[in-house]
Amino acid sequence: MKKITSLAILSVLAACQSPAEMPLVADVFTPKSADEALEPYYRSLPEDFYPRAPAGLALPEAGKPLTRILVGSCLDEEKPGSASLRSVAAESADLFLMIGDNVYGDRDGPAYVNNQPELNELRASYADLAAREDFKAVRAKFPMMVAWDDHDYGANDAGRDFPFRRLAERIHERFWGLENEDVGAYPGTYYARTFGPEGQRTQIIMLDTRFFRSALTPTDEWGKKGKERYIPSADPEQDMLGNDQWTWLENRLQDPADLRLIVSSIQVLPTDGHGFEAWAAMPLEQQRLYRLVRETDAKGVVFVSGDRHTGFLYKDDAALPYPAHEITASSLNVAFAETTTEMDRAQVGEGYPPENFGAIGIDWTAGTVSLEIKSNTGETVRQVTAAFR
């Protein structure tokens, strides 16, 4: 295979800015975007270009009811020995959800700034994760479902404008062994699975809040409490999921299920507690999500999120036709504080900033879920029980 240098690739990217009437080469397609220009090169990369996770367990059988699910996000693969991962490995559960920032592959800055269209740092981060003994222990014990967030997408807070998103998707799907499943056949990393017999069906919907997302609205008061990075916008052109994923989600919400976990890498319910990334930064999209749940008559929805480097529990009585609950489990080993004063109108109790992971217990007889934030030693430090029927 002839090697294509980064300089040549960047020349192609620059050419994408040329007027449409000036093709790059005669009889060759004129790409409409940077990621489209890179696509032929990315398709030529060999399989050994991609890091792979250790072999994992098959997902639970479709007819098996789930009773316990673990959740984690924000794992710095370069930090030695995670107490949280060791505690996760000591738990009993049917499934483990890694829901974003599963590696930090952009510590050196965005790849497009550092002339890395091959996403060298991101691939190295995944390789480091694969080599961790604590990750291997978790991988060997639990079937896993995964979502990504910005740091395992390739650039902090990035959305659809990330020029190397198509390669980032390939890296994600190949690392987690998803390339030959439905999610590997279409753009984006969203997918869903349902487990359990009628009356005990748990549907898990893994959203992709990166690949299709338009830009957020920057704050006008950087760092101010409640407006730290972004502010809500009424721009009707802003989009969180993209048309295809929105249509797919509408269909999935009509699938038979008794309990539905909608996994979003960024928070769904909070509205006024902070100004970082969240659905509240696109309030029209947030309301669109709620409206879709109502219109599809989807029962038993519980939101699951990460990203925030603090564990939170939320309850909103107005968002859905029934009380809506959310658990934010973050982070496995990237904690920034011991306490927090953050309080959102939907928040249940204080946040928990030290290292943590989440647990979701399902009581089919009572029709309830227990949402737990657990410390890195496995102690339950925050808990709420919610009815789902």
Score class of each variant (00 low, 15 high):
residue 149 D to V: 06
residue 180 N to H: 14
residue 49 F to V: 12
residue 252 R to C: 08
residue 371 L to A: 01
residue 356 N to L: 06
residue 198 E to L: 08
residue 158 A to F: 08
residue 361 G to W: 04
residue 280 A to E: 02
residue 172 H to G: 08
residue 252 R to S: 00
residue 29 F to T: 11
residue 203 Q to M: 09
residue 231 I to F: 02
residue 115 N to L: 14
residue 14 A to W: 09
residue 68 R to T: 07
residue 355 E to A: 13
residue 176 W to L: 14
residue 75 L to Y: 09
residue 205 I to E: 02
residue 352 Y to R: 06
residue 113 V to N: 10
residue 57 L to C: 08
residue 1 M to V: 14
residue 241 L to I: 04
residue 44 S to N: 06
residue 87 S to P: 10
residue 252 R to M: 06
residue 201 R to I: 07
residue 271 T to M: 03
residue 161 D to V: 03
residue 337 A to L: 06
residue 255 D to M: 12
residue 381 V to Y: 00
residue 377 T to G: 07
residue 81 G to E: 12
residue 184 G to E: 06
residue 232 P to N: 02
residue 227 K to D: 05
residue 332 L to V: 15
residue 141 K to R: 13
residue 116 Q to L: 06
residue 327 I to R: 07
residue 184 G to I: 10
residue 184 G to R: 10
residue 351 G to P: 10
residue 40 P to V: 02
residue 198 E to G: 11
residue 233 S to R: 01
residue 157 D to T: 09
residue 348 V to K: 04
residue 111 A to N: 08
residue 56 G to Y: 02
residue 222 W to T: 12
residue 105 G to L: 11
residue 257 A to D: 03
residue 383 Q to M: 00
residue 156 N to C: 13
residue 305 S to A: 13
residue 62 A to Y: 01
residue 308 R to Q: 12
residue 63 G to E: 12
residue 257 A to E: 03
residue 77 E to W: 00
residue 307 D to T: 07
